[in-house]
Design a protein around this nucleic acid. Structure first.
Lengths: 210, 210
DNA sequence: AGTTGTGAAGGTATTCACAGCG
DNA sequence: CGCTGTGAATACCTTCACAACT
C-alpha cells in the first residue's frame, strides 16, 4: 500500500535533511525534527510509522539517521543507482545547472542537456554531453532518462514540454513561469520563482484562518 | 474568513494562468480550466465560490478572465503595487535573475541584490542596485522588502536565512538544497532542483495508492 | 442546453491520547 | 521516565448532485 501524498513529500525532505547532517549519527528525536522542520512531532512520528521502518532504526532516544534515511529512500522507490535527468534549455538559468554541485551523492544526476541553439552548445562546458533538440527522442530513450528540468524561454515552454512527454519523460521540473498542461499520469513540479512567490503570498493570506 | 491553503495556492496559479492568456478575454469555463490545469472542474468551481467573486465575473458561458484574475489577486492580499523582493547570493544561479523577464507586469519586482563578494558586485549588471551583504539590514528596511530569493552556496544557506529573518523578511524562496529552519510565522518555499525531483519521485511513489 | 454555485456526503490527513517498550 | 508507535477522534478538503440562472 502507498503513502499519503503529503506524507511522502515530507519523508522525501526528511531523508535529505538526515543525509545533510553528514557525520552526526546520534539518534534524532521527533521533537528535534520538529525544531528543524516545523512539522509537529506527532506528524513526524505518524509519517514514520506509516513508513514501516525496521526496529533497529528507532531507539528509546530517537531515530537512527542513517538507517531511517535509507528506509525512506527504499520505500519511496528511489532507485539504487541515480535517476538520470536532463536539462532542457541552456540559457542563463539552464546553464547554471551544468556545474551545479548540489546533487552530491544524492539519487539524481544530470546526464544530458538540450538546446536548439547549436552555437551555444559549442560554447558551454559540462560534465555530461549536450545535444541539439532534434536528438531528444533518441537520447532520452537510449539513456533511460526519466525526468526533465525545463528552463526554456516562456514562449517555448508548452511546446518543449509536449515534446518531452512524447519522448517518454515521466516528470518535469518546471522552472518557467508558464502553467503547463500535461496528460494524466505525468507529474509537474513548478519551481519558478514567480510561482514560489505567489505561493508565499497565498500561504500568508491563508493564515487569516486564525 | 480565510481560504483553505490548497485553495489559495490553486487560485494563485489560476490568476497567473489567466493573466498569461493576455489578449484572450473570452469567457473561460471551469471545464476548460480543468483541461489546462488538471484540477477537476468542481474543485475549480468550489475554489472560486469560496473566493466570493462579483457576479459580473461569471456568465453562463464561464468566467471573465480579467475580472476573475483581479478578484483573486485582491482576495489573496496581493498589493496594488508590486511586492518588493531581493536576491541573495549572486553566483551563477542568483545572477540569472538579474535580467529575468518572467516578472512582466505581475505583482512582484526585484529591487535589490546582495552578495558578500564585492568584486562580483562590480562586474554584474542589473536593472536594480546590488549591495554588499553588510548593507542588508539597512536596505531591506528602507525599501520595505518582504521576500528574499535565496541563491547562496549550501554551506551559507542557514546563516543567510537567519540574517534575512532578523532583517524582517517574511518569506523566503529557497533555491538551495538545504532544509531551512525558520521561526514560526516565516514562510519558506523550497524551490531547489533537488527538492523538486524528490517531490516528483515521492508523488509517483504515492500513486501506488491506486 | 450549458453553465455556475453550493449544501451535504464522502474521503484523507492531522491531531490527540495513551499504551508499550527499552 | 522519555521516547516511539498507533488506534480513535477530529478537522480539513474534495467530490457529488442538483438547484438556479441565462
Amino acid at each position: 500500500m502507498g503513502l499519503p501524498k503529503p506524507t511522502a513529500e515530507r519523508l522525501s525532505q526528511l531523508a535529505r535533511l538526515l543525509e545533510q547532517r553528514g557525520g552526526k549519527n546520534a539518534p534524532l528525536s521527533s521533537a528535534e525534527i520538529e525544531q528543524l522542520t516545523g512539522w509537529p512531532s506527532h506528524t513526524v512520528r505518524k509519517d514514520i510509522s506509516l513508513l514501516g521502518i525496521p526496529p533497529e532504526a528507532s531507539t528509546t532516544l530517537g531515530y537512527a539517521p542513517a538507517l531511517l534515511a535509507r528506509a525512506i529512500r527504499e520505500r519511496l522507490g528511489f532507485a539504487e543507482k541515480a535517476h538520470p535527468c536532463c536539462v532542457v534549455g541552456l540559457g542563463r538559468l539552464g546553464s547554471a545547472f551544468l556545474d551545479y554541485e548540489g546533487f552530491g551523492d544524492g539519487p539524481f544526476t544530470l546526464v544530458a542537456g538540450f538546446d536548439s541553439n547549436v552555437n551555444r552548445l559549442e560554447i558551454l562546458k559540462a560534465d555530461f554531453p549536450l545535444y541539439p533538440t532534434f536528438k531528444m527522442k533518441d537520447v532520452i530513450g537510449r539513456l533511460g532518462i526519466e525526468f526533465a528540468v525545463l528552463c526554456v524561454p516562456p514562449a517555448q515552454a508548452q511546446a518543449a514540454c509536449d515534446r518531452l512527454v512524447e519522448c517518454g519523460i515521466v516528470g518535469v521540473v518546471n522552472f518557467t513561469p508558464v502553467i503547463l498542461s500535461v496528460p494524466h499520469g505525468i507529474e509537474v513540479e513548478n519551481v519558478s520563482i514567480i510561482d514560489a512567490l505567489g505561493t508565499l503570498v497565498a500561504r500568508l493570506a491563508a493564515r487569516s484562518n486564525q
